[in-house]
């Protein structure tokens, strides 16, 4: 009897202790959750409300219904910017994935100097965006830049790059291909998670290098591919803002006007926070849709792996 009481007491004590643990847990989480509310949830609520308001950050907001949305639909630039953003994504994301995969395959094996090579491959990724933009602005300068000097050196035509609406966006895509460190690191980890036995078995069965790549390596890193693609899509919006803001200002002929640049101009140049919010919603819906599609594919792939 005594013992049982003692055990019950112990249980109660343990339960209280666990409750304390929880209280401690929530206490430690307070700053983070506060940040989530202040920096993510509240802005989301406010911006949804602002879509339906006229607001210049000075006078109180005025309810205008769907006026902002209609204004955006009338404005040709919205479509141009959305098109440019999609164009960038469609070119940059696949090439960045391919680049990260090639890097990971090349630098996966231990060989002398591989640590140095991995560091070098990651290095451009850490260059601050303001400096990075200036490097390429100079490199693609038609007169002074080394890119055209190289092209002329081998007898190729030297386009005017950022001044030409046909090539301006390609410059942005090209320069983004050097900042693939994150994807590279994730794929490197994914490749090293593949058990060696798979390759050994394949070799016993007489599989060649190409077959191993297409039958073992690629299917097993495919889910990681989708993850990196999601992250690339999300980050590309910030990337296209800084590059277009610092390098072209949206010129020539609106060829480099991307959605975030429009958001910035609407809100911070013209103080039209209502239409700005509606544009942000476009950014949000666009990236949300693309990420959603990738998540569905991801689920299918992992379901197949389970089988």
């Amino acid at each position: 009897m005594e013992d049982r009481l003692g055990a019950l007491g112990g249980q109660a004590l343990r339960r209280t202790r666990r409750a304390w643990g929880r209280a401690d847990g929530w206490l430690l989480l307070t700053p983070y959750l506060g940040g989530v509310v202040l920096l993510f949830l509240l802005p989301a609520v406010v911006s949804t409300a602002l879509i339906f308001a006229r607001y210049d950050a000075l006078a109180p907001p005025v309810w205008v219904g769907l006026e902002n949305v209609n204004a955006l639909r009338r404005e040709n630039l919205t479509g141009t910017a959305a098109g440019n953003s999609l164009y960038f994504l469609a070119l940059a994301v696949p090439f960045r994935l391919l680049g990260a995969l090639l890097l990971a395959l090349l630098l996966q094996r231990r060989q002398p100097g591989v640590g140095f090579l991995r560091a070098v491959a990651y290095l451009p990724t850490v260059i601050p965006e303001a400096a990075y933009a200036l490097i390429w602005l100079w490199a693609f300068n038609p007169l002074y830049g080394p890119v055209n000097a190289l092209l002329r050196g081998v007898g190729l035509p030297a386009p005017s790059w950022l001044a030409d609406p046909g090539t301006a966006k390609l410059v942005f895509v090209f320069m983004s291909l050097f900042q693939i460190g994150e994807g590279f690191v994730v794929l490197l980890a994914a490749l090293q998670e593949i058990p060696t036995e798979y390759y050994d078995t394949a070799e016993v069965l007489g599989a060649g290098g190409t077959q191993m790549l297409s039958r073992i390596t690629l299917p097993l890193v495919a889910p990681w591919f989708l993850l990196i693609a999601c992250r690339d899509i999300v980050l590309s919006f910030q990337y296209t803002f800084t590059t277009s803001y610092l390098m072209t200002g949206g010129d020539p002929y609106y060829a480099t006007v991307f959605l975030p640049l429009l958001v910035y101009e609407e809100a911070f140049d013209r103080f039209r926070f209502g239409t700005g919010s509606a544009l942000m919603a476009v950014v949000f819906v666009l990236s949300g849709t693309l990420v959603g599609i990738l998540c569905v594919i991801h689920r299918h792939l992992s379901a197949e792996h389970e089988r």
Partner: peptide, 20 residues
């Protein structure tokens, strides 16, 4: 929730963060 937050493009929040 944290993973979902990582999938929000920062430019989708600039303006309202400014207001707040």
């Amino acid at each position: 929730l944290s993973l979902v937050l990582l999938l929000i493009p920062p430019p989708a929040l600039w303006l309202t963060r400014f207001v707040l």
